[in-house]
Design a protein around this nucleic acid. Structure first.
Lengths: 188, 188
DNA sequence: TCGTTCTATGCAACTGGTTGCATAGCAAGC
DNA sequence: GCTTGCTATGCAACCAGTTGCATAGAACGA
């Protein structure tokens, strides 16, 4: 299960609570792994009882107390072991592609709005990633030189940027194709 | 559940048995959706009992008999309904990216072989997709002009090609980064 | 004749992930 | 005083997907 490993990496980069982790999974880690808070809390609990994590109760003022998790020795070993074993190259699960092929048996033009919506989402993500790249890695406020951890975070972010750029370009291609088919008239 | 919809699309394109579907999921449909034969058989059974599919026993010579599935009226309606409702833009689950960020807490150079292996897999997929594109859509044996279904299959394949090309380029970037960090020496 | 490979189908147990719901403190604004 | 919203944590039920195993006919080669 890679969620465990994603959590280990995130907590090594910075210890934090379940709530904070959930927010990171909406941001940086979320570029390549997603998880809901329910799942995170459940896995944190299990990892803690497995001895992979340490917990510390942190009383807070002006907001509810929290539990701060950090990586324990066995957690670090588990991560290291995983890093050294091979993993399967990822496989896609792309609903939109299923829809596009399915549109041949419906009205292709009806997909236009859906594709446009996805185009907007991916354009927004791209803009967001690019802003983050400038803020954290290439802009005037960024550390120079970057340490190894930052270099690795940057190359992963470049992957996210490449993915979004590619996706936006492909969605342009899809839109052009749908328009072409629409101009030629619908079919069954 | 999009596996149902992927099966509906695939069976509309061409009726077939669970075994044949499983093989398609290793090929064309597999470019953007994966499924094992166990899962396919189970879902086929449920879809048939839900009235979405028709089954026909096909006795065969020289090999075991098979059950050929095809899409029934309600199946077509279900697909159409799904095509008209919005779906969430897909989110990634990219283990390798987790590993790369995790490498900051281990030896980055140890990831080289893993990344090279993924690079080979994606290069092979790219070559395979490109060969398929020539065979089915752009080569001398391909139909001219393409009908709408073929145009849509082609644009989805172009998406797969773009994805693999982008991934290979990114993995080159990752390799260069790892080499750079390796030359600078490992760290904790 | 025995092992292997390919076609073809399936069950059972498990794990990972999603969805819906619930609780609670505190701040800010109406 | 009431609602809204943010921080913070969690349970329970369900669903989708994976893994391991099993069966069986037929072809093919050692």
């Amino acid at each position: 299960m890679a969620l465990e490993h994603a959590i280990l990496v995130s907590l090594l980069e910075q210890p934090g609570s379940g709530y904070e982790l959930a927010r990171r999974f909406e941001r940086s880690i979320g570029y390549f792994w997603t998880a809901t808070h329910q799942q995170i809390y459940r896995v944190l609990k299990r990892m803690e009882s497995d001895g992979l994590l340490d917990v510390r109760d942190v009383p807070q003022e002006r907001r509810p107390d929290k539990k701060e998790y950090s990586v324990a020795g066995p957690g670090r070993s588990a991560l290291s072991a995983w890093l050294h074993e091979p993993i399967e190259p990822e496989s896609l699960r792309h609903d939109l592609a299923v829809k596009i092929r399915g549109a041949a048996f419906d009205d292709p033009a009806a997909l236009l709005h859906e594709v446009e919506r996805h185009h907007r989402v991916h354009s927004d993500r791209l803009a967001h990633y690019l802003a983050g790249e400038i803020r954290d890695f290439t802009g005037p406020g960024a550390p120079v030189p970057l340490d190894a951890g930052q270099e690795l975070q940057h190359v992963v972010l470049r992957g996210g940027i490449a993915y979004e750029r590619m996706t936006v370009a492909w969605l342009d291609d899809v839109l052009a194709t749908l328009h072409r088919l629409g101009a030629a008239g619908p079919r069954a």
